[in-house]
Computed example of a mutant assay.
Amino acid sequence: MSAKGSDRFEYLQTLVTEFQDTDSDEAKEQVLANLANFSYDPKNYDHLRDLQVIDLFLDMLTEENESFVEFGMGGLCNLSMAPELRDFILQNDGINLVINCLSSRNEETVLSAITTLMNLVTANSRSEVTQPGVLHCMLRFSLSESPRLRNLASVFLQDCCSREQVAQAEQQMQRQQQTALGIPLPKE
């Protein structure tokens, strides 16, 4: 490891230690934001993996603090582009954790979750990433007033799903709208 690489590792290690040692939510948010920013750079991937930052980001997805979830999701989104890190996320129940973030009230968290799901699509994971509940969610997002959310959901539906999957999900949603509490509504 070069001196520069060693300095980078030590700095990241200091951040992880600070996160673990502090009781201040504000300090933890700042550290998570910094770690998420460092996860943009592929030069940091090995260090972040060695320091178990991916596990930390995954753990943040179940926190009640919305900022923790946002920064954890943002960090995972950045890391999920690297095939070896994507595989680690997939092996550690990442899909379900990310899917749960689709219901966040924080738009940044939702945008990162959608992007992460797109990054997590492989031949083996496609059916789990494009399960009916996710498709219904993406169809709703594709009608959002937010252009960013609407466009990203549309890209997900085009790039990750077959036309048949989308058509089937649309039909299911229409059937659900035609019934109230399981009671068929009168035909017009």
Rank of each mutant, 00 (worst) to 15 (best):
S2L: 06
S2T: 15
A3I: 10
A3Y: 10
S6V: 07
F9E: 10
E10W: 08
L12R: 00
V16F: 08
V16Y: 00
Q20L: 13
T22S: 15
E29K: 12
Q30Y: 11
N34F: 05
L35G: 07
L35I: 05
F38T: 03
F38H: 14
D41V: 08
D41S: 10
P42F: 09
K43S: 14
N44F: 00
H47E: 10
L48Y: 04
R49H: 15
D50V: 07
V53G: 02
I54M: 08
I54R: 02
L56P: 10
L56S: 10
M60N: 09
L61H: 00
E63F: 12
N65Y: 05
V69Y: 05
V69L: 01
V69K: 02
E70I: 00
G75L: 05
C77L: 14
C77A: 11
C77F: 10
A82V: 06
P83E: 07
L85V: 04
R86S: 13
L90S: 00
Q91I: 02
D93S: 14
G94Y: 02
N96P: 01
V98S: 05
I99P: 03
I99E: 14
C101T: 08
R105W: 09
R105L: 13
N106S: 08
E107D: 12
E108S: 15
E108H: 12
T109M: 05
L111T: 06
L111H: 03
T115M: 07
T116P: 01
T116Y: 01
L117H: 06
M118V: 01
M118H: 06
M118T: 07
V121R: 02
T122I: 06
T122E: 07
A123V: 13
R126M: 02
S127M: 10
S127R: 11
E128N: 01
T130R: 00
T130W: 07
T130S: 08
G133V: 01
H136N: 10
C137A: 10
R140A: 11
S144K: 04
E145P: 00
E145Y: 01
E145G: 14
S146C: 00
P147L: 10
N151H: 10
S154P: 02
S154D: 12
V155N: 07
V155L: 11
L157R: 04
Q158E: 15
C160N: 07
C161D: 04
V166N: 04
A167E: 15
A167N: 13
A169W: 03
Q171H: 13
Q171F: 13
Q172T: 13
M173C: 07
M173R: 04
Q174V: 14
R175M: 15
Q178N: 15
T179N: 13
L181P: 00
L181A: 13
L181T: 06
L181Y: 13
P184R: 08
P184S: 11
P186V: 09
E188N: 12
